[in-house]
Computed example of a mutant assay.
Amino acid sequence: MSAANPLRFLIVDPLPGVQTFARQLLESYGFPADSIRCCGDIASALQQGLDFKPDFLISDSFPKAEMDAFGLHQHLQQAHPGCRLALLSFEITPELEARAAQAGARFVLKKPFTAADLRDTMRKSLDSMAQERPELHARMMQVMKAPAAPKAAPPRPIVLPPMQAPLKPGDKVNHGGKTATIEYVVIRHGELVVQLRGQGSLVPASQLNKL
């Protein structure tokens, strides 16, 4: 593959917000849109990935799926041995960490995470991978340091959640004048949102005051 070709990324996560933010993050670094593909499930990722041959698989662990992220990674490596794995998971167990280490995972990021968490983790991982693999370093620098073409649209900025303090499951917050408990925290379309205990809808973090 020519050094002029950018890295290819396959993002696999059931949460559309995670897909959107990860794509936005990579595009903000200068990676072209056609070098990034997103899927919501393992089957779709396998179908696309065998043809796309990603250099970097960023995936939810999918622990309850018939084929989990490790199985997907193994199949993609058969098509492209240079494919690297990164994991996102709500539950990080010693078994998961051991399997991740065996698979050479670039990182394991615990869900829920903030926009800044994903940004910083991805930045460190890309820097590390560039140092370890000179051929990828050349491809990254081709994209990330080349001057923009005339009249080219600038990379989209990363939109960070409009929150003043970190929120996590179990926190007490004021919502509409009532005290509520946070059940889940997720990123949706680049915005931090939460699900309150006993409520089905998601609430933007900007509408909550932490107690």
Rank of each mutant, 00 (worst) to 15 (best):
S125M: 13
G176A: 03
D60G: 13
D120V: 11
R197D: 14
V193A: 12
S28E: 02
D55R: 03
R197K: 15
P162K: 12
Q47V: 09
A115H: 06
R99G: 03
T179F: 00
N209I: 12
F31N: 14
M140G: 09
S28D: 05
M144I: 10
R106T: 13
L136M: 11
Q131E: 14
L208A: 00
K168V: 10
Q195R: 15
S2P: 15
S89T: 11
P154K: 04
T179V: 01
I187T: 09
G176F: 07
V108F: 00
R23N: 09
E27K: 11
E95D: 15
E183Q: 12
L87E: 00
S61E: 11
P63S: 04
K124W: 07
F107H: 11
H137G: 09
P63R: 07
Q48I: 13
L76F: 10
T20C: 03
T20K: 12
G49Y: 01
K53C: 15
S125A: 15
A148D: 11
L136C: 05
K111P: 02
T121Q: 12
K210R: 15
V185D: 05
V108T: 09
F113Y: 13
Q74I: 10
L46P: 02
D13N: 06
G190L: 07
L96P: 01
L202N: 10
A98T: 07
P166D: 05
S35V: 04
A86P: 01
G190M: 08
C38S: 15
L57D: 03
K168A: 14
F62K: 10
L72F: 03
A115S: 14
L109V: 11
G177K: 02
G82K: 06
Q24G: 13
Q24V: 02
P204M: 08
M122H: 05
Q199F: 05
D13L: 03
A115T: 15
E191L: 07
I182A: 03
D171W: 00
M144G: 02
P16S: 02
Y29A: 04
A149D: 06
F31G: 09
K151P: 01
A138V: 10
C83T: 15
C38E: 14
R106E: 13
P81N: 01
I36W: 01
T179I: 00
Y184P: 01
R133M: 09
Q199Y: 06
T93W: 02
E95M: 11
K210I: 04
C39L: 06
P6V: 00
V203K: 07
E91N: 04
S206M: 13
R197W: 06
H137E: 12
F52T: 11
P155S: 05
P63C: 09
A45Q: 10
C38R: 13
H80C: 06
D117K: 09
V18H: 08
M1S: 14
A115N: 15
L126E: 02
Q164W: 07
C83R: 07
Q199P: 08
S59K: 01
V193W: 08
F90G: 15
A146E: 07
S2Q: 08
L109Y: 04
Q199G: 08
Q102M: 07
P169M: 00
R123K: 13
A149V: 01
I58S: 03
P6A: 03
R197N: 12
S35N: 06
Q24M: 06
N209A: 14
K64F: 09
F107C: 08
R84T: 10
M163T: 11
G49N: 04
Q164N: 13
